[in-house]
Design a protein around this nucleic acid. Structure first.
Lengths: 253, 253
DNA sequence: GAGTGGTCTAGACCACCGA
DNA sequence: CGGTGGTCTAGACCACTCC
């Protein structure tokens, strides 16, 4: 009963998510019991529970012993790809994304870089500085470091390539996991010039370390957004929250 | 084999997390196979997999078919309580937390408030404005709205109560899930006065809607931090990411 | 007490990775 | 080709909620 293009439990989860976002159960409404859903979909209770764990992780339902699951929110969820790719995100919001490479250099990894990319200190890495635009308006400055193997692919891309992420995926680079840190940082001279703001103005910073299915780092990126251009959302639960709060500036750049 | 204070899979997960953070497998190292762990802990493979799903959700391991799981990070993870409670968070970082109620009023819920707390429009809600301090230094302004039942408990707390969250939990209010939005917002006159910054200065905003195990909203809070005082971290994966990116100011306050 | 979700087991087959 | 994780099933017992 395995070996399908898409796992059964993912189809069930997707179907339930569709139902929820279409308001089939209402906001705060109750989902059918596991047993009922199992029969409806013709699957075992275990498969229904696997689907439910996806919905729970995405913040759609609350669940506890003794009562049926309750709808927590009805909005659609965003995909992993839209989180990693500025281009995909922009398009999903109806905006026209753009990007321009300001600088791309190769060189030996610093101590910080080698730790973040898990390569030997002094190993060659590829650094790219880009401005990202929405409908021509600069909104974000992106500083990305790639390990040598990925950097070789990046180096072959045209400077005006809109989405590096999409191109890398086409080359077989798979993004599987990412760790993010979100905080504030004052704009430096480069940020100010590229974004058209004042030096020292506060920007929203997202640092991101993406890894492939084998756990090997693909990129480390530091993105700085102008105020009012972006918001991040997350869900957390007592069982296992992915979101956490840290003190001050953990790795000020 | 059920009916324990803590589920077996949670003990296994906690034990593995401890091993990982103590470097027993190294950074980027491989974990033992599921079958091996099942035998070691004397549990079934299903229980080991449940434990692994916790580790995966918390960003500790990457996993794929064909090879053993790989350690992604070795740092300790924060608890759900430390995410929701400013006080617990501050103490976990070695700081001395403080809080002062600036204003606490009751009144009919606005349209926005009623939607956020899932109460009828015009239903009584309790609004609290507080300054939060670290070692006496103001770092955050907190605007929280409680539904009437919770507000009644809050109203009985002393104004200098350090942690409302902890006191509410003592009264039997259980926090089970939360949805968060993180973005930037300019300081208004109140923020500026309470935080000692300029009006219009950019602050980091976290909006949070917490619900109990039944899915009923407990609070809606809007917290505004001074730059350099806080950072949020999150993990996401292709399977089911809890983090997402949204456009502009989704619900500007 | 009936209904429901939480936990655990045992076993099966498959897809994938790497030697 | 053996080892490993991914998926699915069937069944069991328990804790909890609500009537």
């Amino acid at each position: 009963m395995a070996g399908r293009a898409q796992a059964l439990y993912r189809k069930v989860a997707a179907d339930l998510e569709r139902g929820i976002s279409e308001g089939a159960y209402g906001s705060g409404g109750k989902l059918p019991a596991e047993g009922v859903l199992a029969e409806q979909y013709g699957v075992s209770r275990g498969t229904v529970r696997q689907a439910m764990s996806v919905l729970r992780a995405n913040g759609f339902v609350a669940s506890r012993r003794g009562t049926r699951r309750v709808v927590l929110r009805t909005s659609q969820s965003q995909s992993f790809g839209e989180l990693l790719s500025f281009t995909r995100w922009a398009r999903s919001t109806g905006e026209e994304p753009g990007g321009r490479v300001v600088r791309a250099v190769q060189g030996p990894a610093s101590g910080t870089e080698s730790a973040r990319l898990r390569v030997a200190e002094g190993a060659e890495v590829c650094r790219v500085l880009r401005v990202r635009t929405l409908s021509g308006r600069p909104v974000m400055v992106e500083r990305t470091v790639y390990p040598e193997a990925v950097g070789a692919l990046v180096a072959e891309l045209e400077p005006d390539t809109v989405s590096f992420t999409v191109r890398l995926e086409e080359q077989g680079v798979l993004f599987a996991d990412a760790q993010h840190t979100i905080d504030l940082v004052p704009a430096d001279a480069t940020d100010a010039e590229l974004l058209g703001c004042g030096e020292g103005d506060v920007l929203l910073r997202e640092q991101r370390r993406s890894t492939d299915p084998a756990g090997a780092p693909i990129e480390f990126s530091e993105d700085r957004y102008l105020p009012g251009t972006v918001a991040f959302t997350a869900n957390s639960s007592a069982g296992s929250g992915s979101l956490a709060r840290r003190a001050g500036r953990p790795s000020s750049g």
